[in-house]
């Protein structure tokens, strides 16, 4: 069963002078097993939006349903939240315990699992994110490097075995290798756990490569939702919205503006090379 968002609106400080509409009239469905990307610049409402997916925020109007559980209802929210794992941008906001293993076990223990089960799940989660328990289990989370902290935070959520994994800027602040590794980890988690991944990212290259569908948010509204092909065919609009487009999409756009007929679905280097090869040979 999917996540269904219907006419979601969220206002901060409603009915005051400072009322601010962060998210307005968003309707979309995220299906099981999808890799769903969300892009939008700072202040576009994407953070507010994803916090509705596990009930950390409640809609001012509209509804969010996770596997049939209405997230506005206090009792149903508890069950819905258990399905949605949320990894925030900065691991420093969640790591607190004295060892990595204890920290990863925090979630499973809160779910009411007994100590041994929680431990098993945590060890498994650590292995999945590439933190070998032999080496990391007894380390303090505060001694870890930036990339390792990110993995520990991810493991803390994976250990709860969510059906939906929501990731807020999972690669921000990492070096290029760290970014590649985390993205590969997310991909393998999707394979192994068969979970739905919802990823917010600034990096268009990463979203273009990984996501099956992308939602573009602008000024609190859903500007567009569709496959990368559909979204990056609107490169011109994305740029005018102050969003980054993948560089190859920019190149294609630049060539179009110089009067060449570059197909709309070219936004990766691989596709560009293929197209250019065909184009040069045909002539």
């Amino acid at each position: 069963m999917p996540i269904i968002v219907e006419k979601l609106t969220h206002k901060y400080m409603p009915n005051t002078d400072n009322e601010f509409v962060a998210v307005q009239d968003i309707s979309l469905t995220i299906d099981d097993g999808e890799f769903f990307g969300i892009i939008g610049h700072t202040g576009s409402g994407k953070s507010t939006f994803i916090q509705h997916l596990n009930g950390l925020m409640q809609p001012t109007s509209g509804s969010v349903t996770v596997d049939g559980f209405d997230m506005s209802d206090k009792k149903q929210r508890v069950r819905g939240r258990a399905l949605v794992g949320m990894v925030f941008q900065y691991p420093d906001y969640q790591l607190f315990d004295s060892t990595v293993l204890d920290d990863v076990s925090f979630g499973p223990k809160n779910m009411g699992l007994d100590a041994e089960e929680a431990r098993q799940r945590s060890l498994e989660a650590m292995r999945m994110v590439g933190l070998e328990p032999e080496h990391f289990a007894e380390k303090s989370p505060f001694e870890l490097s930036g990339g390792e902290k990110r993995r520990a935070a991810l493991a803390g959520i994976i250990a709860m075995r969510p059906k939906y994994l929501v990731l807020d800027e999972p690669m921000a602040g990492l070096d290029p290798s760290g970014r590649r590794e985390i993205l590969a980890t997310i991909d393998s988690l999707r394979e192994e756990l068969k979970c739905t991944v919802i990823m917010v990212s600034h990096s268009m290259e990463d979203v273009a490569r990984a996501a099956g569908r992308i939602a573009v948010m602008n000024d609190g509204r859903l500007y567009a939702v569709g496959t990368p092909d559909e979204i990056f065919s609107k490169t011109k609009e994305l740029i005018s919205m102050g969003l980054d487009a993948p560089q190859t999409a920019r190149l294609a756009q630049e060539l179009r503006e110089r009067g060449f007929d570059v197909p709309q679905d070219i936004y990766t280097n691989e596709r560009f090379v293929k197209w250019l090869r065909g184009r040069v040979k045909h002539a």
């Binding site: 916090q51 596990n54 950390l56 939240r81 258990a82 794992g85 949320m86 925030f88 906001y93 969640q94 925090f106 979630g107 809160n110 779910m111 803390g156 959520i157 709860m160």
Partner: peptide, 8 residues
């Protein structure tokens, strides 16, 4: 919020 998301 991060801890709430972990079931705190």
């Amino acid at each position: 919020k991060a801890q709430l998301a972990r079931g705190a």
